[in-house]
Design a binder for these strands. Structure first.
Length: 352
DNA sequence: GATGCGTGGAG
DNA sequence: TCTCCAAGCAT
């Protein structure tokens, strides 16, 4: 079936309906010769991995404010970057962000590679992100295949093979539409369409610029597509967080190991979050258990986190973590589950 | 190919 | 309240 008009229809639609984003150069400005900042594009694409535009905006603004160039970011302290990323989730992205920035400075003279192959070799840059940066920042005709494009292609071609098995065929469809005249605008256009028109639950087919090309719209199957293999139910795990405050107001915190859940992030000492009984607290103290646990859902399990608090003497020696002075402690530097525990304990521990 | 890895918003 | 899910990557 010929769908040669899809590309031009999407570009025409994008010229009128492109959404404003801090890292995006709008089509009219691109025509006037304005080029995207590859650093800003890379930062946005990493932040947007499995994350909504609404959630990314403020973080992107914060990062470019503190670290205006990739060289600035490469020179940053690890702890400062992790603290700035706190709350955005998927913290391996922040660790790889730093690795990538340092590789760009050390191995590429501070300039991002301009090819798909050069980009995908960098930490935290996979097939999607390499194609996105190559097309958006450098107008290389690379094909982006993210969740939006998968949905758009599955519907355009009424493809019923479930994901992720359908990825190769959806990629072949996407490649057929990739623009060679305006690669960056096209990549953003097809993703904008998926985000605003061809949405998962209530697609606005009535105003869709490629409705005449859409096999699912013809068949009436758009709400069933794309099909996905069913997910496993999430188990519930239990644990305990220990929030201790010293006589001078300092808080007992520890940096978590780089690997695993919340890797590299600052947090309260906790038990592990399995089914095993609680090991010993991080030090001898009189621990009080709060009435309400912190509840939090991660990607693959629910957590019910009991919170224990203690006020401890100045000479207390912890066997885990370190006391952070009150003046240096900012709850916003903690991942969300740790902020929840803090909020529950704050009233109890406000007075030293 | 399957699994681990956050979070907040929408329905 | 609960499920789904959003511009994925590393292993």
């Amino acid at each position: 079936m010929g769908k040669t008009s899809v590309t031009s229809a999407l570009l025409d639609w994008y010229d009128v309906h492109a959404r404003e984003m801090p890292w995006r150069v709008m089509p009219a400005d691109k025509r006037a010769g304005v080029r995207p900042d590859p650093y800003a594009v890379w930062l946005s694409e990493v932040m947007l991995q499995q994350t909504t535009v609404a959630a990314v905006r403020d973080y992107h603004r914060k990062f470019t404010g503190i670290w205006p160039t990739v060289a600035d970011l490469a020179a940053a302290e690890d702890a400062d970057v992790m603290a700035a990323w706190a709350g955005l989730g998927y913290y391996a992205r922040a660790r790889n962000l730093l690795k990538c920035a340092r590789a760009v400075v050390a191995d590429h003279g501070g300039a991002f590679p301009q090819t798909y192959e050069g980009l995908i070799a960098l930490p935290g840059i996979g097939p999607y992100t390499a194609a996105a940066i190559a097309s958006i920042a450098f107008d290389v005709p690379a094909t982006v295949l993210d969740g939006n494009v998968e949905r758009v292609m599955a519907r355009l071609y009424d493809e019923h093979t479930p994901l992720p098995a359908a990825k190769p065929v959806l990629m072949s469809y996407a490649e057929q539409h990739t623009s060679h005249s305006r690669p960056g605008d096209y990549a953003q256009a097809v993703m904008d369409l998926g985000a605003t028109i061809c949405t998962p639950k209530s697609p606005a087919c009535g105003i869709c610029p490629v409705r005449p090309n859409c096999d699912a719209q013809t068949a009436g199957t758009q709400l069933e597509l794309p099909r996905k293999t069913p997910k496993k139910p999430k188990p519930t795990r239990y644990g305990t967080a220990y929030i201790a405050r010293r006589a001078d107001g300092a808080w007992l915190l520890e940096t978590r190991p780089d690997k695993g859940l919340l890797g590299g992030m600052l947090g309260w000492p906790t038990t592990d979050w399995s089914d095993t009984p609680d090991p010993a607290p991080p030090m001898d103290a009189t621990w009080d258990t709060l009435n309400e646990p912190a509840r939090h859902t991660f990607t693959h399990f629910h957590l019910i986190l009991s919170v224990q608090t203690a006020k401890v003497p100045q000479n207390t020696a912890p066997n885990r973590g370190a006391f952070i002075p009150e003046a240096d402690f900012t709850p916003s530097a903690l991942p969300t589950v740790m902020q929840k525990a803090y909020n529950l304990a704050a009233a109890t521990l406000r007075q030293v």
